[in-house]
């Protein structure tokens, strides 16, 4: 994870488009300016970045289901719970399940686990739209390749 660049997802470990599920692996950095402020002397991942991590994991699933023809933007967070802290260097897994594939929107539920223990959970609603410009589309494709999105899903876009 590169927190200051909002690169929350390290690698897609599993994605099942038929079952509408995804699992991603992430490792918190040992050092980050974010930890210097949150909190001095007691570095933990901010809860809002746990939610962002869930949202990004689910976003890959939504966009993969659309063969990357459209972009998923975070629109709503519901029932978010941060059950325990995440500290520098900690390894986490994020699971997300798409609950509904709407027209112009998608609804997912997601969870963060570490060592099998549930750390955080949230419901996420995305607004699904055409890419607003080619630069975003290109940039997203580069990240998609880095996190391990299968090339055939990008080829259709």
């Amino acid at each position: 994870m590169r927190l200051e660049y909002f690169q929350m997802v390290d690698r897609i470990a599993a994605m099942d488009l038929a079952a509408r599920t995804i699992v991603v692996d992430c490792t918190l950095p040992q050092e980050s300016p974010i930890f210097e402020g949150h909190f001095p002397g007691y570095p933990i991942l901010p809860g809002v970045l746990m939610i962002e991590t869930i949202a990004q994991a689910g976003g890959w699933l939504v966009m993969a289901g659309l063969r990357f023809r459209q972009m998923a933007f975070l629109a709503k967070v519901s029932e978010a719970k941060m059950r325990s802290f995440l500290t520098p260097g900690q390894v986490i897994q994020v699971e997300a399940t798409q609950e509904h594939d709407g027209s112009g929107y998608a609804v997912l539920s997601g969870r963060i686990r570490s060592g099998g223990k549930l750390v955080a959970e949230a419901g996420i609603t995305y607004r699904v739209m055409d890419f607003p410009n080619p630069a975003l589309r290109q940039g997203l494709f580069e990240v998609a390749r880095r996190v391990g999105v299968p090339e055939e899903l990008l080829a259709d876009a």
Binding site: A75, K76, H100, G102, S103, G104, Y105, V107, T125, R127
Partner: peptide, 8 residues
């Protein structure tokens, strides 16, 4: 945004 919830 509320309309998304209504649509869902």
């Amino acid at each position: 945004l509320d309309f998304l919830d209504v649509a869902f």
